[in-house]
Amino acid sequence: MSSDRTLVTVSAGLSVPSSTRLLADRLTEATVEALETAGHTVTVKAIELRGHAHAIVDAMLTGFPTGDLSAALDTLYAADGAIAVTPLFTTTYSGLFKSFVDILDKDALRGLPVLLGATGGTARHSLALDYSLRPLFTYLHADVLPMAVFAATDDWAGAGDQVNPLPARITRAGADLAARIAAREPATPADPFGSTPSFADLLARGGHSA
């Protein structure tokens, strides 16, 4: 049965253009293609952390995200699936990426299918996906996909792993995420007034008496 799905991408690239954003876009395209092939319509929303850097620091200091950052968080929390991609520095995720994760509601990603990706200079840094990035989202109780995608500099030129080249890894990861999203009940945003009694309920309880 077809349905609408919302896919959110979070990328923490620092430069413009960014290989991190490029990887996020390629993973998004593969996921959307797989979902549309299965008969679903997809809405894609991108969160580029570079544009929220100052607001993320402010939220860490005050404990309250505001403005566009608050809206971005609400978008992520209401998603049916997410792609999170970070550059690797000194063998781990970037400080900007970690700061964003630190301001997330600790229960908001529970059960959310998440595909992880990372970029770095050489393939030897790819293990950071499993010993650094994966535990971060496991702690948040996200449904982290077994497959993650690392892109080294040589991968973009087609000079990387010829047995398992980057385009093939992207296609497979996108298909895996699409399957997780399709198997899940579509996200329904919480009604902020859902627990408020109606006027009719108040009258039935005698709320009309003086």
Rank of each mutant, 00 (worst) to 15 (best):
T188W: 02
A24R: 00
L140M: 04
P17A: 08
F89H: 15
T196I: 14
G39E: 11
P192Q: 03
F137R: 00
L109E: 02
D80W: 08
L136Y: 02
D4P: 09
L76E: 01
E185S: 15
P146A: 13
L166P: 05
V10R: 03
T9H: 05
T92G: 15
A142D: 01
G160D: 01
L61R: 13
G39W: 10
A178E: 03
S126E: 11
L116F: 07
T138Q: 13
P87Q: 10
F89P: 05
L35F: 07
P135I: 00
A187D: 02
L14C: 04
V101E: 06
I56E: 00
S18A: 05
A204Q: 11
L177A: 07
S195D: 15
D143K: 06
T41A: 15
L23I: 05
T75K: 05
L116T: 10
Y93N: 07
A118D: 01
V16N: 09
D105N: 12
L112E: 07
D68S: 13
L35P: 04
G67E: 10
T41P: 03
L202P: 01
S126C: 07
L27V: 10
V57Y: 08
T91P: 00
I47F: 00
L49N: 04
V163Y: 06
F97E: 10
P197F: 00
A55D: 15
S2N: 14
D161A: 11
L203W: 02
S70P: 04
L177E: 07
L203E: 13
A175S: 15
S18E: 01
V85G: 05
K106M: 09
G174Y: 09
V32M: 01
M147W: 00
V101S: 06
A84H: 02
A204R: 12
A152D: 02
A157M: 07
L115T: 03
L145W: 04
G194A: 04
A24N: 04
A204G: 14
K98T: 09
M1H: 12
T6Y: 06
E48W: 03
A24C: 07
A72W: 03
H125A: 11
M147N: 10
A179S: 13
R172L: 12
S209V: 12
V149Y: 00
I56G: 00
I170T: 03
R21P: 05
R172Q: 12
A178D: 06
L35Y: 02
T75G: 08
L23E: 00
T92N: 11
A38F: 07
W156C: 03
V10I: 15
A108K: 11
T153H: 08
Y77R: 15
A179K: 10
V16W: 08
A168D: 14
T122A: 14
L129M: 01
A46Q: 14
T62S: 15
I181H: 03
P113E: 11
L133I: 09
D143R: 08
V57E: 11
S195W: 01
A46C: 04
A190V: 14
L166S: 08
R180S: 13
V57N: 10
